[in-house]
Design a protein around this nucleic acid. Sequence first.
DNA 1: TCATCTTATGCAATCGATTACATCGCTGCA
DNA 2: TGCAGCGATGTAATCGATTGCATAAGATGA
Lengths: 336, 336
Amino acid sequence: MNRNYPRIRDVAEAAGVSTATVSRALSTPDLVSEDTRAIVLKAVEATGYRVNHAARNLRRQQTGGIVVLVPNLANPFFSAILSGITSAMAPSGYNVLIADTRQGEHIRDYLHNNRADGLIVLDANLPEDVLSAGAPERHHPPIVFACEWLENDTRPKVVIDNVYGAGLAIDHLVELGHQRIGHVMGPPDNVLTITRAEGTRRALAKHGLTLRPDWFLEGDFSLASGAEAARRWLCMDDRPTAMFCSSDAMACGFIGELHHRGVRVPDDVSVVGFDNIDISAHFVPALTTIAQPRTRIGETAATCLLSLMKGEGEAICQPHVLEVELIKRQSAARLG
Amino acid sequence: MNRNYPRIRDVAEAAGVSTATVSRALSTPDLVSEDTRAIVLKAVEATGYRVNHAARNLRRQQTGGIVVLVPNLANPFFSAILSGITSAMAPSGYNVLIADTRQGEHIRDYLHNNRADGLIVLDANLPEDVLSAGAPERHHPPIVFACEWLENDTRPKVVIDNVYGAGLAIDHLVELGHQRIGHVMGPPDNVLTITRAEGTRRALAKHGLTLRPDWFLEGDFSLASGAEAARRWLCMDDRPTAMFCSSDAMACGFIGELHHRGVRVPDDVSVVGFDNIDISAHFVPALTTIAQPRTRIGETAATCLLSLMKGEGEAICQPHVLEVELIKRQSAARLG
DNA sequence: TCATCTTATGCAATCGATTACATCGCTGCA
DNA sequence: TGCAGCGATGTAATCGATTGCATAAGATGA
């Protein structure tokens, strides 16, 4: 930041008005006459003035930024959401800060409302106390949850219907003639894991299929854990003919590992994923999956947070449930 | 941001010292006696004080943040780099803002030094004037380029040796007996495209192979452009037996599309990618590729920027060239 | 014992934009 | 004519932390 940088006072002098008028011309144009406004804008142009955000934020008692808490930034699933957030935030002038929740203690800083005017949380598995709504001595800024959320928490969230999505996947497999269906899950304490597993169980029950707990494999949404699940599938002496994976990354890892071991998808086993990440359409075989609108999740969360910060109340921020969709491709085929 | 939030004055009163002492105890502990420091820290604890960054930044004439300009945030290639940046930045206390360069005019704002104390640029294809070093009336903050860079520009950068990397790929294919080698390129005006194509040409020449311009296909690093390249490959009546793709995403798109059309990799054509993104090891077939240390690129860029901002001069910021490595997997096989 | 130097602390100005309040000039109505 | 009301603008206080300068207390040396 450069000293001798044009200040609002320089603009005021150039325009022959007071700093108050310059400030008003820029942030509340209705309060100045059309003529002065034009003069001021010309002076701004001439001096190359840009507002000093630190000064503005100090006076306005705000920080001028929002923070996005991301679990594992390196996971491409989140980059599309981030992209949606930044594009929805850009016109507002708020800065978008990102913080990787794996970076330990630093996140606590971000939760304080003197660090950010708002928060978008993509990771509901933070240490117990961090996100608790019930600690009034901690001054949290407005929070919007996206993708993940806390059970029994009334704060606004932007999510999908994971139970329904899982149901779509199972219905499809059953339609293809599969009766022996397994499930690769995410990490145990994750809401997405829980709801997708629940949806899987319900759909299996609906179709009168017996539930085989030994066919529910634990994973962590990653490629590597999908590969690990494949190895466990290979060790079974009584194998399912189809696997529903709780993330596309796990589905890809699963298929890739099977391929290395000489097992073919969908010939030897059908696979359905969840997320519809970019690679899925190009995978070999192209991945049948449940699509969720990732960019729109980000946009919606950002828009919701903006209206919360404007103080437009919680009313318009009822849980947004965005639609999911079955994308039929080649990784799941008719049993036979 | 809450009014009646503890200010430095509250801490001062609680500790029975002046605000100056509190400030010093926190930011320059050496200037304060051990006893008072302890008292102040206790008072900080008791009041729950957190510094107001707007006030600090205003007084210190800084913004407290750095901006990362990313071309297409939704591209997973960049998320690993971002991850490296945030982890290297976390201890410094600087905020990390991200801006997607596709978001048009807003980027210009970020380039002004009253918006950020430093800049990491991952996209060298911005409009001509935006990054030009030679416009002194624009007050740029310190800049570090990463991955991409401007030709004939002496500013610090963190890059890899793309010519050498491309050479590794071609050498490997030649070693496997391939004589007819094509190349899928990135967008035409991109430095990575240019240097990787140059490396390809040089390596082909080194091995005495004739250069076939009709085997150099244009792409844009994306999955979709890889698929498009596959379609063009299929239309050739005189096909290369191996393709070196300038990004893993294009390699995956290429292989996926061929697979849909019944062409097998590596049986019918060998493919080598570039980047070693996470999916590559799990792709079908597992992708032979040139690895670049993406996380470390981010970390190095961040560290370099930090020392630049500390005013430690350009000296320690000579172009950092990080190493690349050939990862042999299954997508490239012996010809025959 | 006094002058000098060092260390620890306080006082108060400062960073730049915003905004409550005061002022001024004008219009319109009684 | 006089006064209320309104629109446009200026004056100056304010946001909270930092830091140059002043000062006081203690250490050192002659």
